[in-house]
């Protein structure tokens, strides 16, 4: 898979001296969904803004499909659609007019068929004659996506795309985004909803204090950094973990009614989970259990631990 965006040594220090980005290197693969995670103020929006031409970098460069984002800005920007974080729109114009306006700004001739397709795909067709001021927050968010898609971009940046959107709409939007990816559009999204990244992303990048601390395939990340837990619901409560079981990574929960065993999610044949040994030890010590279940740590937990580690 070729790289559609190449960020090399990117730095941004604002006039006040605040360093928002520090030597960021990143390659976005064509056709992937890339999720950029990071706490507030980490530099996510600045990174997107530099790539899209809204902020001037102070170091490094960005290539969009091989075009330098500063020297060859026309070619670079023509390939990009941007959905900003804030719900910004001209309240007095209609949905149809504002989406058509966006297409024209990118130098594309009028194409009512394409605009209709975009509006229908976002369930906005019935609202096409409505002024933006009459729409709900969720609908306004959809309009921003429609505007970003009006000029048929190859790359779509979604900066917190589902902020303030209810659960049903959020799932609808995920479907839209997946549909775009299926049509070959590269998607880069920032989100506060880890669930969103977990649900949709192919790869995850974590940014913190302007530095990219990790870029990894989502599944590999969850395998490498994810933890699994086995919870055993005991027949009789325990006051403490018996000494005979001390060599296992065990803790008591539910006021002694449950034993929690933590193990590596990346267990392999040559490095087993230790569950079989634990169960044998439990039997040997006469501790009975009536139920058990396992749980793998979510991306959110991985993210929190990553941010803590790099703090």
């Amino acid at each position: 898979m070729s790289d559609v965006i190449l960020v090399e040594g990117l730095g941004k220090t604002y006039a006040g001296g605040f360093q928002a980005l520090n030597d960021v290197d990143l390659a976005i693969r064509r056709g992937e969904i890339f999720a950029l995670l990071g706490p507030n103020g980490a530099g996510k929006t600045t990174l997107i803004s530099v790539i899209c031409g809204l902020v001037n970098p102070t170091a490094g460069r960005v290539l969009v499909d091989g075009f330098d984002s500063v020297r060859e800005f026309r070619e670079a920007r023509a390939r990009i659609g941007l959905v900003p974080q804030e719900l910004t729109n001209d309240a007095f114009v209609t949905v149809w007019d504002t989406v058509s306006f966006s297409r024209g700004l990118f130098g594309k001739p009028r194409d009512p068929v394409h605009i209709e397709r975009v509006l229908r795909s976002l369930s906005l067709w019935d609202k096409r004659h409505n002024r933006l001021m009459t729409l709900s927050g969720g609908m306004k968010r959809r309009v921003l996506i429609a505007k970003a898609l009006a000029h048929e971009p190859e790359i779509l940046f979604l900066d917190e795309p589902t902020a303030g959107v209810d659960v049903e709409l959020r799932r609808d939007m995920w479907e839209v985004v997946r549909g775009l990816r299926d049509n070959g559009v590269t998607i880069i999204l920032t989100t506060h909803y880890i669930e969103e990244a977990e649900e949709m992303a192919d790869r995850i990048g974590v940014i913190r204090r302007g530095e990219l601390v990790l870029v990894e395939e989502k599944h590999a990340l969850m395998r490498q950094l994810g933890r699994k837990e086995l919870t055993l619901h005991l027949r009789e409560p325990l006051e403490a973990v018996p000494a005979a079981l001390a060599h296992h990574d065990l803790s008591l929960a539910e006021e002694g009614h449950a034993l929690v065993y933590r193990y590596d999610a990346e267990a392999r044949d040559d490095d087993p989970t230790g569950i079989a040994e634990l169960l044998a030890d439990l039997e040997a010590t006469g501790i009975g259990f009536k139920d058990l279940h396992t749980r793998q740590s979510s991306l959110e937990e991985i993210f929190v631990s990553l941010v803590k580690e790099t703090a």
């Binding site: 031409g53 809204l54 920007r77 023509a78 941007l82 910004t88």
Partner: peptide, 11 residues
């Protein structure tokens, strides 16, 4: 209103 983003990010 913030809609300037669209003009500045256009070609």
């Amino acid at each position: 209103s913030g809609t300037i983003y669209e003009i500045l990010s256009s070609p």
